[in-house]
Simulated scan of single mutants.
Amino acid sequence: MTVTIQVPEPLDAEQTPSRRRVVLWTVFVTVVILTALAFFAVGRLTVAAQQVADDGADAGFARDMQAHHAQAVEMALAVRDTSANEEIRAIAYDIATTQQHQSGQMFAWLQEWGLPQAGTEPPMTWMSAGTGEHGTAHQSQPAATPEERMEGMATPEQLQALRSASGADADRLFADLMIRHHQGGVAMATAALNLAQTARVRDFAAGLVEAQNAEILALQDLRARL
């Protein structure tokens, strides 16, 4: 597979610091996307024909991370359409496009495995096969919503606050929510890396941990300057 990368124009002294950061962020995200695609391709080539359990970590991760990504995309699109901050808009666009693509990959996995997109178990139950911390805590709350069960998910009230905010307040709230959201995503991907049975899911989870940890650092740096 041949991948052509369009390299941004060299930075010059006349470009503003904000513009330079946006260009560097674009280069960073391009590398992250290509790395994720590479992990995905390796997983497709190395995964052997095997039965994936409906209640196992592979299927549970694919379902729950789709829901987790969907909220990240929702938050990113909300702020991208309203923010006047060039860096926030660039970050939001990259999060939305990258996570929509990854959700499509996980949707396709479930189809290939012959499994439904919705499982019979509550969200995050698959993580109880690890330390037991998540599954045990959530089994006592069978009526909990996905937002309450999944780490890093914003509450409906927080989402409404983000939609209603504007200017620098919206930028700061988006950065705060997305940092926490990514931290939850890293926790889920780390569990999948340890529990998944297929090389495809383990490789994808490893790439996700690396990419989202890097994005957390970038968001924290940006948040400090807002």
Rank of each mutant, 00 (worst) to 15 (best):
R21S: 09
A48T: 14
L177D: 00
I91F: 11
I216L: 02
L222M: 06
G167C: 02
G104E: 12
T98R: 03
H138V: 14
M106R: 06
I91A: 11
G130E: 04
E148S: 04
R200Y: 11
Q105C: 05
A199P: 09
I179E: 04
I179V: 15
V29N: 09
E86T: 12
T131G: 15
V32N: 04
M150K: 04
Q160I: 05
L173T: 06
P17Y: 09
A218P: 00
M188E: 06
V42G: 11
A144D: 14
Q197S: 14
A192R: 02
Q111M: 09
F39I: 00
E147A: 15
S103Q: 09
A214D: 06
T120S: 12
P156G: 05
R63F: 07
A189P: 11
I88H: 05
A224T: 08
T4M: 09
V31Q: 11
I216H: 04
A62M: 13
L217I: 10
E151L: 14
Q6I: 08
A92K: 02
L115I: 07
T155Q: 07
A96I: 06
A62E: 09
D81F: 01
P156V: 08
R172Q: 13
E121A: 14
D58F: 06
Q139A: 11
F39V: 08
S18K: 11
A165F: 05
V201E: 00
A214I: 02
L219T: 02
M124Y: 05
A129H: 13
A49C: 03
S166K: 13
D81P: 01
A143F: 14
G185F: 09
W113R: 04
V209Q: 03
T120L: 06
E148V: 01
F40S: 05
T4P: 02
E147L: 03
A48M: 11
A49F: 10
Q183Y: 07
D55A: 13
Q99L: 08
I216F: 04
A192V: 02
A189D: 08
P146E: 08
G184L: 03
M127W: 11
T97M: 10
L217K: 07
E14W: 15
A187L: 13
N194M: 13
Q6C: 03
Q183F: 04
A48F: 12
M178Y: 07
Q111E: 14
Q6S: 09
R63I: 04
Q50R: 15
A53G: 05
D54Q: 14
L226S: 05
R163C: 01
D221Y: 11
A224C: 02
I95F: 08
H181Y: 03
